[in-house]
């Protein structure tokens, strides 16, 4: 991350001390112990500040409209997730105009010092411990699949599911990063959401992707079949999986003429 972006952030977040967590594609992520509006010395909790910096490559009109719509969209989505009881960070405060969201901090530090996204955790197991297909990995993948099933049963679409956008926490997996989220009940949209994740798994965790993907789908199915939603859920699962097969085929068959 370049100093220019950090300086920009410091200017906007005056009097807030923060540590840099990561530079994603569209946002910088900081960690702080300061609550934006409560002043409680006893408060030990930490918060995440997500900042969407201005993108100098974009036309200012495009930039403004995207920053604003994604920040608003993300906050609304997180609010609805909280209401539906789907694990994700809770919003603390927002500044739409400057593209800033304060939220609850979730996750922990892995033994290699990285934050506990599903990707980092799997990479850590692949590289350091060589135990990628343990029962624990299977259990976590099934839980993640279940979580995504829950999301879709609420007709909510993440829009950018990758192993970097799933955070592991002591209480279980949680979703993060909702800048591209949307709402839809269509099997097609849910299938595309699953396909994006499947492809991300294939390209990021090539050696074990087929196992990971099958466990994810197992959890996804479980969310639809264990009866805490309507009886239609099972039927919609079948439809979504049928669509997923179509979407996969579409990807492979897409004509690339020219």
């Amino acid at each position: 991350m370049t100093d220019r972006l950090v300086d920009e952030a410091k200017l906007l977040l005056r009097n807030v001390s923060f540590q840099i967590v990561s530079q994603g594609a569209e946002a910088l992520v900081f960690k702080t112990n300061i609550h934006p509006y409560f002043n409680d010395d006893q408060d030990e909790s930490s918060y995440i500040i997500k900042y969407r910096p201005r993108k100098p490559y974009r036309h200012p009109k495009i930039d403004k409209s995207i920053t604003k719509s994604r920040t608003i969209g993300e906050v609304k989505f997180m609010f609805k997730l909280a209401k539906a009881g789907i694990r994700a960070p809770r919003v603390v405060s927002t500044d739409y105009f400057n593209g800033i969201i304060w939220m609850e901090h979730i996750g922990y530090s892995l033994p290699d010092g990285k934050e506990s996204t599903l990707k980092n955790w799997l990479w850590y197991l692949e590289k350091v411990r060589g135990e990628s297909l343990s029962e624990e990995v299977q259990r976590i993948c099934v839980e993640v699949g279940y979580l995504i099933g829950d999301l879709h049963l609420n007709d909510m679409i993440h829009g950018d599911l990758t192993s970097s956008n799933i955070m592991l926490d002591k209480k279980g997996p949680a979703l993060i990063d909702f800048g591209l989220s949307s709402y839809s009940a269509l099997p097609e949209d849910k299938a595309v959401d699953l396909y994006v994740l499947e492809r991300a798994m294939n390209s990021t965790h090539a050696d074990y992707a087929s196992e990971y993907n099958s466990w994810l789908l197992k959890g996804y199915e479980k969310a639809h079949s264990d009866g805490h939603y309507s009886k239609q859920a099972n039927k919609s699962f079948v439809e979504i999986i049928k669509r997923l097969e179509d979407v996969r085929l579409r990807g492979r068959k897409r004509s690339m003429i020219g």
Partner: peptide
């Protein structure tokens, strides 16, 4: 051009961040 290329640069940046 501005619209299409912004989108291309954005998905490239997403891939950079991802890998």
């Amino acid at each position: 051009q501005e619209t299409l290329f912004s989108m291309l640069v954005e998905i490239t940046e997403r891939a950079l961040a991802h890998v």
